[in-house]
Structure formats: C-alpha cells, structure tokens
Write a protein that binds this DNA or RNA. Sequence first.
DNA 1: CGGGAGTTTGAGCTATCTCAACGGGGGTGG
DNA 2: CCACCCCCGTTGAGATAGCTCAAACTCCCG
Lengths: 244, 244
Amino acid sequence: MPNLTPEMFAKLAATPLFEGLAQHEIEQVLKQASQLRLEADSYFFYQGDRARRIYILLSGQIKVIQLTPEGQQVVMRMVNPIELFGCIAALSGGEYPASAQATKDSLALSLHQDDIHRLMGIYPRMAINAFQIMVKRTHELQDRYRELATETVERRLAHTLLRLMEQSGVRKGKVILLDMPLSRQDLAEMIGSTLYTVSRVLSGWEARGFVEAGREKIRLVEPATLRLIAEAREFSADLAHAPI
Amino acid sequence: MPNLTPEMFAKLAATPLFEGLAQHEIEQVLKQASQLRLEADSYFFYQGDRARRIYILLSGQIKVIQLTPEGQQVVMRMVNPIELFGCIAALSGGEYPASAQATKDSLALSLHQDDIHRLMGIYPRMAINAFQIMVKRTHELQDRYRELATETVERRLAHTLLRLMEQSGVRKGKVILLDMPLSRQDLAEMIGSTLYTVSRVLSGWEARGFVEAGREKIRLVEPATLRLIAEAREFSADLAHAPI
DNA sequence: CGGGAGTTTGAGCTATCTCAACGGGGGTGG
DNA sequence: CCACCCCCGTTGAGATAGCTCAAACTCCCG
C-alpha cells in the first residue's frame, strides 16, 4: 500500500474508475498498488515492453507516444492526473503498443494485471467504470481520427490547442497559458504534421494576435477565435501570402 | 428473449463478451435482449440519436459512419458478426456519435443500457470482458490513427484491404475475395482520401496484377505483395508515370 | 560568451485533391 | 427481352496544401 496523503486519497476516490465504490473498497484496491515517481523526460514504459501493469497518474503529466517503423513519432494522447494509462495491460500476454514519457515530474500508482482482473471480479463497479472510461476514450479517438481524415493542419492545430486548454490550461489574466513544455515538434506529432508547418501556422496566428507562441510554451489570447478556426467559420492564417 | 437457433446461441456463447460465463448465465443475459433484423442499406441508428442500446451483430455486416459538419463521411469501422457496436450507449445520457448502416441484410441483438449496467453488476466477468474489448478497440484505432498521420494513401489502402481480408475475406481458388459491397468511395472514406485517388491506386495495382478490382468488389491476387506495400518495402503503383 | 536546442523563413517540390469529361455494365421498366 | 439510364468507375489536367531541405536566427544556460 503506497503512502498517500489524505488529499491524494480524496482525489483518487473522485476518479471515474472508483466512482460508486465505498471508501473501504477503494482502500482494499489501493493496497495492491505500487507507487512510482519519475522525473520529467523519463519513461514509465517503452513500446514493446511486456504489458503487465496499468497506471493511474497522480500528479504531473504523461505523453503517450507511438513510434513508426520508420522512426517517426506520433503522440497518441496526453495523460493528466487521475487518468489511466497503460490499459493495454488489461489484455494478458501483450506488449505496450506505445511508450509513456513523463513531460513533467510525475507520480503514478500502478496495479498488476492479475490484481486488476481479480479486483474487478470482486468489485464489478470498477470493471463497469473501466469499460465506460474506455468507451469514452474510443469516442475521443474517433473524433481525432475524423479530424485527421478531413481537416486541414490549421484546423487540427486549433482543435488540439483547445483540447489542451481544457485539460490543463491555466488562466493568466486575460490569456490562457498551456501549462506544459510544448515544442513545435510535439504539436506536429500530435496532429500528424511537421514542425515547419506548425511554426508557420502559429506565426500567422501570432501576427493576428490570436496566440502568443514562445519557446516551448503557448498562450492562447483569443480562444474564441481559435474555436472559430477549428470549426472553419473564420479566416485562416493564410500561410502563403499573409498580408501582415 | 429472442428466438435463437442453437447455432446462433453457440456462436454467441463464443463471443468475447460472454467468455467465462456459464451457459445459464448467458441465457439470463439474453432474456433481456431484443432482436432486430434490417435489410442492406438501412440504419440501426443515426448519428445524434439518443444512445440507449448496445448491439451485438449476429449476422450480416455493419458500417459505422461519422458525418462531418461539412457533410463528408468517414467510415470509422466495419462491424462483423458477434462484434459489439453502439457501445457509446454504455455512457448514460449521450447521443450516438456515428450512424450504423447495414452493408448486407443483418441481424442484431440489442440490450438497453440499464440492463447492461445491471447485468454487469451481477456478472462482473461480462464487465471485464467489455472493458477488454474496448481496450483492444482503442488499440486498433490508435494504429489506424498512426497510419493516417504518417503513411501515404497507397500504404493506407494496402493496410485497409489486408485488414478487411482478415475480417471477412473469402478464399476463391488462389485469390481472396472481399465479401462485401465496397465502392471506391467507401474505401476512400475508410482511409481519409478521395474516390479518384483510390481508383488510381487500384488501377495501378491491377496493371501489375496484385488485385482485381471490379464494380463494388475487390479480389486480392497477391496479398503478400500488398503486405510489402503496406510496410513500404515494395515499389508503389506510381500514380503519376506508371510504365504500364 | 560560446553552444546547442528550438524556431523561423524561404524556395522548390510532390502527393493528393479538385473538377470535368467520358466510359461501361447491369438492373429495370416498358 | 431489350434499351435506356443511372450509378459506379476511369482518366486527364490543373491547382494546392503541406512537405522537404537548407540556412539563418534567438534564446537560454552553463
């Protein structure tokens, strides 16, 4: 049983995974968990590792990355506190299909697949919750798939920044700061583009005052305008011939 | 309780969803199910409908389609017998994010979300199975997302045909027939492309003898070559200047 | 005060889309 | 039963979004 602060425990109890479970039941589950603390840039697991543990992020942030055979990276998702990752370990006998890298110093709990399986048998509500979490995730991934299949880079980038804003945006006066290290390369890997194109789009937006884009940080000045761009109801950055 | 033939029942019992459940337990679950038979081209539900029922396909085939605000279609997946669809109904209060259209005459069972929830509480194994099914589906969708983000139309098309072959390919002598109506437009909507580009790629392959492409049907003559194309270890159809 | 990682920008290229026109086969209604 | 029509498919030509490569620029950090 990891040594959790009461606040940590309260946060965990509020996780969708534990919804509907009694305090003592959650304690029973957490007895099986181990705790893992990693500093920024290190990995919880690598693509191809034997998948044995499911993780719950307590603090920090994780990036789930898939590597193509050609060595290109694709960012599958950003994981924020009290979210699950490494769920593939629920299927016995497989490998992690992606790597999980901390983007900040992070703390996570993990459960062995055997324990997960056993505990879900005892506490069906947890299994139902896990099912629902995955349904939701599939749904979100379908939306991103549709975006990738039908939208321009600019719209995809707008969608992505808005999503990041909702997940971990921090209000700073009138603007919203995306509170994570985020290079042009990272953004490109999230939307299936290149760092060059991302840089051009951001420059275009910055010239119009929609965002402020610094080195590995983005501030959203006019989220509403980004929303319009995402929905294709607003002019674009017009990469080619921006009239300043 | 729907009137199932013994063969149907046996097939259902072999569904991943019911794995590990006893015969009489499966019967208890199926008592709550209703049966729905639809002919080709009609819809089980439409995008935007209130999501109340989860479906299990018994026979036929379903296409899950998402419509963009601009009216473009994206095929999210093909559903084959004993697979689930409409899982979003597991989350209460939502709408179906996509439509489910029969591509052949089809028969499906459906369960109301309240029954699903209740039954999973009684039979935890079913909840665990459902969780695992969704984990697997997320995994597959991630793979397709990565393909869309990093691969050319030709490779994506090769991957897609190979997947369809595994799911519902029928061996006809030396070639494999994809046993479903499949227009250029359908394929384009699966891989995020246009019917024109798909047509050109197929023509290129046909000229080289890898496939035989007819009106709404595809025969794979050299699946192994397609595999090579999918993995980018083989020459392409070379749309621009195919030297016959 | 370098050095390097991250970023910007230009120029050219190309895979793919778009639009337009034509072709063909099979189902159906007269 | 046959002709017509419609849907599906093909192909060409041109346009273009976004990629690639190269080079320069700017912080930040030691």
